[in-house]
């Protein structure tokens, strides 16, 4: 396969999960270090369903997502009432447990060898279409009442409650949406590569996603998507960089956190209105240059 198309597919799959992380972290201010575990659930469940029953791939995706959401509900139920720290602690524990579980259930999951022989039916176009759909859904969610309530909770949970917002419910909705999106990313990845391994879903992967969201700007969906795309493209094209990927990422983000805490994009969103404004500003500058 053409390298560009391969990288583009990877970017699309990453963006699906980055959208999930954006809803959870960017909008609601909760951090999950077990998001990758939901990706694992998506990948394994959809893969096993198709391998064992030969059902339609998209139906398997839906079932896998539904399953991930149910698991997410069980994990989220005790923690959404509590301080937001707890969700990070619990999801981290959950991620470790899932990794163990995959190894223990080796007769189904292939254990350390992974799940092989999944039909490679997700090509770059399918991934692209799904990624665009997910991005549109996320954008629509952001400007809905749920998006607003999520931002209110991130900003001040106590005041949000005092405005009548059922914070537990809104936090749960955000968490489940993010579970669903990461599970979808897992499905796509499994049917793109044709293989699922047990070691690809540690906390580092979840941390990578959070880092991508913060790189572009935690308050901006445009920024998060840019962060996801940029940080996936970059190492693929600089093979020399690949070995140092984790270190380079970390240093980049530490710089951003310290010196430009709002990320590359801040709160700027790519909307028609903002585009027009930016264009006008650009024209004005051009005119000034000409006048001189």
């Amino acid at each position: 396969m053409n390298l560009f198309l391969y990288v583009l597919t990877q970017v699309c799959i990453t963006l699906v999960s980055v959208c999930g992380i954006y809803i959870l972290t960017g909008l609601t201010g909760m951090f999950s270090l077990g998001s990758a575990a939901f990706m694992a659930i998506g990948a394994y469940v959809s893969g096993l369903l198709v391998l064992n029953t030969g059902m339609n791939m998209y139906l398997a995706f839906l079932l896998a997502i539904a399953f991930a959401v149910c698991v997410g509900y069980v994990i989220g139920f005790p923690v959404v009432r509590l301080r937001r720290d707890y969700i990070s602690l619990v999801t981290l524990g959950f991620g470790e447990s899932i990794a163990q579980l995959i190894l223990l259930l080796s007769q189904y999951t292939g254990g350390a060898f992974g799940l092989i022989g999944i039909p490679r039916r997700v090509n770059v176009w399918i991934a692209l279409i799904i990624a665009i759909l997910v991005i549109i859904l996320t954008a629509l969610f952001k400007c809905s009442k749920y998006g607003r309530q999520c931002i209110a909770i991130k900003s001040d949970e106590l005041a949000a409650k005092a405005m009548g917002i059922n914070t537990s419910r809104v936090k749960m909705i955000a968490f489940l949406l993010s579970c669903a999106m990461t599970a979808l990313a897992g499905c796509l990845s499994a049917f793109n590569i044709g293989y699922v391994g047990p070691t690809d879903f540690g906390w580092k992967k979840s941390a990578d996603w959070v880092i991508m969201v913060f790189f572009g700007g935690v308050n901006s969906l445009t920024g998060s998507i840019f962060g996801g795309a940029f940080l996936t493209f970059l190492p693929q094209y600089m093979q020399a960089l690949n070995k140092y990927r984790a270190v380079v990422y970390a240093v980049l983000v530490l710089f951003i956190l310290n010196f430009k805490p709002k990320g590359v994009f801040g709160e700027w969103e790519l909307t028609p209105k903002n585009m027009r404004r930016a264009l006008m500003r650009f024209n004005r500058k051009q005119r000034k240059v000409k006048e001189r």
Binding site: G29, L33, S88, K204, I211, A246, A250, L254, N258
Partner: peptide, 30 residues
């Protein structure tokens, strides 16, 4: 490296969190 400036800027507590995972990622990467 990770927390001094964030504390000084009075950034929201989420930044401590990201900073701490980033540091974790950095150490583990090294």
């Amino acid at each position: 490296v990770g927390f001094r400036r964030i504390l000084k800027n009075h950034s929201p507590s989420t930044y401590f969190f990201v900073s701490s995972i980033t540091l974790g990622s950095l150490y583990e990467g090294l």
